[in-house]
Lab assay of single mutants.
Amino acid sequence: MDETGKELVLALYDYQEKSPREVTMKKGDILTLLNSTNKDWWKVEVKITVNGKTYERQGFVPAAYVKKL
């Protein structure tokens, strides 16, 4: 869990989004888990830094590609 009590997951593999509802992740990324009720796709939040500014983006990743921490 992070400092706000949200559950975290670890990306076990790289994943490139294939639709606007998904998010890209790299092996080793730590993501915030938002919803894991679907056994195949989990909703996560990723933080992306571009030119020194951090953005948060929500989307789905394959559940088999992440592990709860």
Rank of each mutant, 00 (worst) to 15 (best):
I30D: 00
Y13S: 08
D29H: 05
S36Y: 07
K43Q: 11
K39G: 10
A64M: 11
A64R: 09
E56I: 15
R21N: 15
I30C: 05
G52V: 03
D29K: 03
E22D: 05
K26Q: 08
T32N: 07
I48L: 15
S19H: 14
D2R: 02
G52M: 06
G5T: 09
L33A: 02
I30L: 10
E3G: 15
D40R: 13
I48Q: 12
V23K: 00
K27T: 06
E22C: 05
I30A: 02
N51Q: 10
D14P: 05
R57T: 06
T24N: 06
K27I: 05
A64H: 11
L12I: 11
K6V: 12
Y13Q: 10
V46F: 06
S36C: 09
K26A: 10
S19W: 06
L8S: 08
L69H: 05
T37N: 14
T37F: 07
L34C: 06
F60D: 04
L34E: 02
E7K: 10
K27N: 04
R21Q: 14
K39P: 15
K27A: 13
R21V: 09
M25D: 00
T54I: 10
D29S: 07
D2A: 15
D29A: 05
E17L: 06
R21H: 15
L34F: 03
V66H: 01
K43A: 08
V50I: 12
R57W: 02
L10M: 15
Q16R: 13
T32A: 12
G5Q: 14
L10D: 01
T4V: 14
I30E: 03
D29G: 03
K27P: 03
W41K: 02
V50H: 14
G28M: 02
P62A: 02
E3Q: 15
K67H: 09
L31N: 02
T49W: 11
G28N: 06
V66S: 01
Y65D: 03
A64W: 08
T37G: 10
D40H: 13
Y15R: 02
Q16M: 13
L8M: 14
D14T: 05
T54H: 11
Y15C: 02
V61R: 00
E56Y: 15
K6S: 10
F60T: 03
G28H: 05
F60R: 03
T32C: 08
K67D: 07
F60Y: 15
T4L: 13
E56Q: 14
Q58R: 12
T49G: 06
G28F: 04
I30F: 05
T49N: 11
P62S: 01
K18W: 03
G52P: 02
G59C: 02
T24C: 05
D29E: 09
E22K: 04
D40C: 10
R57P: 01
K27F: 04
V66G: 01
Q16Y: 14
Y13V: 11
Q58H: 09
A64F: 08
T24V: 02
V46T: 15
K47W: 09
L8Q: 13
G28V: 01
V50P: 03
T49A: 11
V23M: 08
L34Q: 03
G52Y: 06
Y15F: 07
Q16K: 11
Q58W: 07
L10N: 02
M1I: 13
K18M: 12
V44I: 05
L33N: 01
V50C: 10
V46D: 03
E22S: 05
A63C: 06
Y55V: 14
E7F: 11
K18D: 06
M1V: 15
R57Y: 05
E3H: 10
E3D: 15
L33C: 06
G52W: 05
N38A: 07
T49Y: 13
T49V: 15
V46R: 13
K18T: 14
R57A: 07
K26N: 08
D29M: 10
K26F: 09
L69E: 04
G52Q: 06
I48M: 09
N35T: 05
K26L: 07
K18V: 08
L31M: 11
G5S: 13
E45D: 04
V50G: 06
Q16T: 15
R21M: 13
L8Y: 13
Q58D: 07
K47Q: 13
E45I: 12
D2N: 12
S19G: 14
Q58V: 10
Q16W: 12
T49K: 13
V61A: 03
A63T: 05
K68G: 04
K39A: 13
S19Y: 05
V44M: 01
K27D: 02
V44K: 00
M1Q: 15
K39D: 13
L12R: 04
V9H: 02
K27R: 11
I30G: 01
V46W: 06
V50E: 12
W42Q: 01
E22N: 05
T49E: 12
L33Q: 00
E7M: 15
R21Y: 14
A64S: 14
M25W: 01
L8H: 08
G5D: 07
T54S: 11
K39L: 10
E17K: 14
A64D: 10
Y15P: 01
K53H: 14
L34D: 01
T54Q: 13
F60L: 14
L31H: 03
V50T: 08
K6C: 09
Y13P: 00
V50Q: 12
G28T: 01
P62D: 02
N51F: 10
D40S: 11
L69A: 05
K47Y: 09
W41L: 03
V66Q: 00
L33P: 00
K53T: 15
V50S: 10
A11N: 01
L33W: 01
N35G: 06
Y55R: 06
A63W: 01
G52T: 05
A11W: 02
V23H: 02
G59M: 04
K53S: 14
E17V: 05
V46H: 10
N38I: 05
N51L: 08
R57F: 04
Y15Q: 00
A64C: 10
E45C: 09
P20T: 08
R21F: 12
K6P: 10
I30V: 09
M1D: 13
Y15S: 01
K27W: 03
V23Y: 03
W42F: 06
T24E: 03
Q16A: 13
K27E: 08
Y65N: 05
I30W: 04
K26Y: 11
V61N: 00
T49L: 12
E45T: 07
Y55P: 02
E17A: 14
Q58I: 13
T32L: 13
V46K: 15
E22M: 04
E3N: 15
S19N: 11
L10I: 13
W41E: 04
K47E: 07
V23G: 02
E22G: 13
K6E: 09
M25Y: 01
L34A: 04
D29W: 07
A63N: 02
V23E: 00
L34T: 04
Y65K: 07
L8T: 08
I48C: 10
K53C: 10
R57C: 05
P20A: 12
F60A: 02
R57L: 05
Y13E: 09
K68Y: 08
L8P: 05
M25S: 00
W41F: 07
V9R: 01
D2K: 04
Y55C: 10
L69D: 03
L34P: 00
K47N: 09
P62N: 02
L8V: 08
V46A: 15
N51I: 05
E22P: 05
M25R: 00
E17R: 15
D40K: 14
E7V: 09
G5V: 12
S36W: 08
